[in-house]
Amino acid sequence: MALKGNLRDFSVTQLLNLINLARKTGVLTIESDGTTARMYFREGRLLHASIAGQDDQLTAILQKAGKITPEQAQIIRTRSQVHTDKELGLLLINAGYLSQDDILSSVKQHVLDVVYYLFPFAEGRFHFEPDQLPPADRITVSLDLESIIMEGSRRIKEWERLHEELPDLDVALKFAERPRTPLRHINLNVDEWRVISFINGRNTIRQIAQHNGMGEFQIRKIVYGLLAAGLVELVEPAEQKRRAEAVPAGGPAQPAKPPVKRNVIMRIIDRIRRI
């Protein structure tokens, strides 16, 4: 099933969150203001990213990363007998010019540069095509999306978007029951850690902001990043009430009991089955 939509309604952060949580494999294409970008994923991990019209051959990537000089890049382009990035990478490693780490770190930085460039896009079409992998000749990486989502969320500048995503500051936060990545694998800054230290299922976002002397924009940005990365969850109103009333914990909060007896529901079920 292809996913289509507009970034106005579903942001890059949300798309990466969806791909991460659903562990999707395929290519996400974003078209915005004359730019067409593609990001490839395997089981929710980022493999490759490129922007149409930009030179993303290995030679250009290594030059951009400062691993080779413009002159060396020119020599490779004109004299090299190899035709693919993978062949060129092997040639450079075998000749002792560069290490495998030099090449992979350069490709990783290139991929991240593309993704972070796309984060602020607020308009444009997106389209996810499942099961498509990068061209076989490309060198790929395999990057966790949680850290990328956190970093991307730090770059959000629009108050309106944050307000829409997190309209209510009077809800409490709890840690996700099954985060895919432990906190220690994520690069959090000092302010994010300060917020994390107050999360206990009872403190509301507003209280956490007050404790830390943070403004609404700052706390929204941090909490949105933690939510989008799947590290924390909002506490449902019923659960929040239960926690606030300090009823002894005993499993998840239950919804309010409907105002009828079991027998009534059984009769309705029986009738609907026979329709």
Binding site: Q254, P255, K257, P258, K261, R262, I265, M266, I269, I272
Partner: peptide
């Protein structure tokens, strides 16, 4: 309705 039933039970 099954969910409602579970809640009642």
């Amino acid at each position: 309705l099954y969910t409602i039933l579970e809640t009642l039970e």
